[in-house]
């Protein structure tokens, strides 16, 4: 179902609860009554087209393949991507860490296994943090510089050289390894963790990992299918001058 601006946000959330963390990233709190998406966006000063693009891309992973026209700036997009990073680092990852350490504390038979699991997740976290850090310190500032240069019609020589040196196309392949580790972790829990105890906690952990995995995939999709093409356009524009 295509989500549109005159729909009630409440209906949308009923229809797809995966969107709850997404609206939270736009600082929309539950308790919004019967307001339509357009109304809420207006009140919160959110670009409606942008909000709908993000909602639809989470709701239907094939949405972005068909909808590439965009009425929003790279800066707006990056602001959102950073909110998402915050959600991973401040909410999702600590939640999962908490679940694992709870399991470790309660474990009677398989303490060693949970210990190994915890170490593996910490390793995964380190890698994710490194990846996010690189995006926020390197990629995003570069994109914002590009957009500013296009808007103000003035290109500094240093920007020129970073386009030649860096270029966004090199950035796409970087999501892979983070995704692989998470998939391995799920497989280990489903197939290989000795099945003696704490099944309920395992279901919960597995669910949280699956939610994180889906969110990360959608996030990567937004970066690959919206951010990258947008930046390629900006690069071309700047180099064309």
């Amino acid at each position: 179902m295509l989500l549109e601006k005159d729909m009630k946000l409440a209906d949308v959330i009923h229809h797809d609860y995966n969107l709850i963390p997404v609206i939270a990233r736009f600082n929309i709190m539950l308790g919004f009554g019967d307001s339509s998406i357009a109304n809420i966006c207006q009140k919160k000063k959110i670009n409606t087209d942008f909000f709908l693009t993000i909602l639809n891309s989470f709701h239907d992973s094939q949405y972005l393949d068909k909808h590439s026209e965009q009425n929003f700036s790279a800066t707006q997009l990056i602001d959102y991507l950073q909110q998402t990073h915050n959600y991973y680092l401040k909410n999702k990852i600590p939640e999962i860490e908490c679940l694992i350490s709870e399991m470790l504390t309660k474990a009677e038979v398989d303490k060693a296994s949970y210990d190994i699991l915890q170490k593996f997740f910490e390793e995964y976290k380190t890698e994710l943090v490194k990846h996010i850090d690189r995006e926020e310190k390197l990629v995003y500032p570069y994109v914002i510089d590009l957009e500013n240069a296009v808007q103000s019609n003035s290109v500094t020589p240093s920007l020129f050289s970073s386009i030649e040196e860096y270029s966004i196309t090199s950035y796409q392949a970087e999501h892979e390894s983070v995704e692989e580790k998470l998939r391995d972790l799920k497989n280990i829990i489903i197939k290989y963790l000795p099945p003696s105890e704490q099944q309920q906690s395992r279901y919960k952990l597995l669910k949280e990992l699956t939610v994180l995995e889906k969110d990360l995939n959608d996030h990567a999709n937004i970066e690959d299918l919206i951010l990258v093409p947008k930046v390629e356009l900006l690069e071309k524009h700047v180099l064309g001058k």
């Binding site: 060693a112 296994s113 190994i116 699991l117 593996f120 390793e123 995964y124 390894s177 692989e180 580790k181 998939r183 391995d184 972790l185 497989n187 280990i188 197939k191 290989y192 963790l193 000795p194």
Partner: peptide, 22 residues
Amino acid sequence: KLGIKTVSGLTVFALMNKLVDI
């Protein structure tokens, strides 16, 4: 066979199955 790709994942498998010592 295992459905595990990364070296860290394989290490976890080896440890849990006591194929190596921690």
